[in-house]
Every structure is written in structure tokens, then in C-alpha cells.
Computed example of a mutant assay.
Amino acid sequence: MITQEQAALDTRQVKATLAALQLIERLRAKHGPVLFHQSGGCCDGSSPMCYPQDDFIVGDRDVRLGEIGGAPFYISPSQFEYWKHTQLIIDVVEGRGGMFSLENGEGLRFLVRSRLFSDAEYARLQAGGRV
């Protein structure tokens, strides 16, 4: 039986703020279905990038973390190893988006915030085979 404490655990590996969800909806209205990819690296590569679903080829080894605002969110395998113990929280701040990311020109950009999973949350992810 699941305890109330276990039920309260939020083990989504990716989620989005209200501001991010609103921007995703605006981008979807302009561009159709979208997806996100977090590849890591410097510059634009360290930001979550938003693409039209038909314009981005997801790698065979990329990890699907979940969905935000109905958009699938993928991460490269090396970044997944680095971030698997954290929950990624996609937010929006003022500024220019990544050169190839759909929010470029909107005056806003997506940003990753994160929090470490608790020991109980991480154990739940492991039990579910998600890490």
C-alpha cells in the first residue's frame, strides 16, 4: 500500500512553470507540434531548445524525460547521466532564445532550473526503472 508521503512525491523528471507552459502554447499556435531537446555544452547547447517536431531528429540514444505542455522533452545520454538525480524545471526569462530555438525573437528564452530529488524520490525512480 502506498503511504500518503509516497503519493506526495513528485518524481516527474521534467516539468514546466506556468510561464513556460504559456510560451509553449504560443509557439505551438505559430509552428504546430513542438518538442524540446537538452543537449548540454556551452552557449545555446546548455539551454533547452524548442523545435518543430518534424524538423528535429531525435537520436537513438536520447532519453525521453517526459512532456511539458504536451511537448516531448528529450535529453542527450551524457546529460541524462549528469542530471538523472535532479528534476528539471523549465522556466522562461526575458532575453533572446537560442539561435535555432523557436522562442528566438519572442523576447523570452527557456531556462532550466533544477532541484535534487530526495532519497525517497530517487529510490522511487530507481524502482520504476527510470534511472
Rank of each mutant, 00 (worst) to 15 (best):
T11E: 00
G69S: 05
E25Y: 08
H37D: 09
I2C: 04
S46M: 08
L125S: 00
P48I: 07
H31F: 12
E121G: 12
V92T: 07
L23I: 09
T11W: 03
P52Q: 14
D60F: 12
E103W: 04
P72I: 01
L9C: 07
G129R: 00
R109K: 14
T3K: 08
P52H: 12
S101W: 01
Q87A: 02
G107E: 04
G70F: 06
Q6P: 05
L21P: 00
F80K: 06
T86F: 10
E5C: 05
F56H: 14
A127N: 08
K15R: 08
Q126Y: 01
S101R: 03
Q79D: 03
G95M: 06
R28W: 10
K30T: 13
F36H: 01
H31Q: 06
S118Y: 13
S118I: 09
G40F: 10
E94G: 12
G40Y: 07
E67S: 06
F36G: 00
M99V: 13
S114L: 10
R109Q: 08
Q4Y: 14
H37R: 14
E103A: 08
F56Q: 11
G45T: 14
I68N: 01
A20H: 03
I89Q: 06
M49D: 02
T86Y: 06
G66C: 08
C42I: 09
R12N: 11
V34I: 15
G40L: 07
L23A: 07
S118A: 08
L116P: 00
L108F: 11
A7S: 12
Q6V: 08
V131C: 15
D60T: 12
E121F: 09
G95H: 03
Q87V: 00
I68E: 01
Y82S: 07
G32A: 11
I68Q: 01
P72E: 06
A20I: 03
E5R: 15
R96T: 10
R130N: 01
A71N: 07
K15W: 03
R96W: 00
P77D: 00
I90Q: 03
S78W: 04
H31A: 02
D91M: 04
D44H: 14
G97L: 09
P77F: 02
K15M: 11
L102G: 03
R124L: 14
F56Y: 15
G95E: 09
N104T: 13
L108H: 11
L21C: 14
R130M: 12
S118P: 15
A19V: 06
Q126W: 04
A19T: 05
P52C: 14
R28N: 15
G97S: 10
L23N: 02
F73N: 01
L102D: 02
E103P: 05
V14H: 00
L116V: 10
E67F: 05
R124K: 13
D10A: 10
L35N: 04
K30R: 15
P77M: 00
L111I: 12
L9F: 05
Q126H: 05
N104M: 13
M1W: 14
S118C: 08
Y74W: 15
V92G: 06
G129C: 11
L125E: 03
I68W: 02
S118Q: 11
H37V: 09
K30P: 03
Y82I: 00
S118H: 10
L18M: 02
S47R: 04
E106C: 11
G107C: 13
L65H: 00
T86G: 08
C43K: 13
L116Q: 05
E25T: 14
L125W: 00
P77V: 01
A7N: 11
E121Y: 11
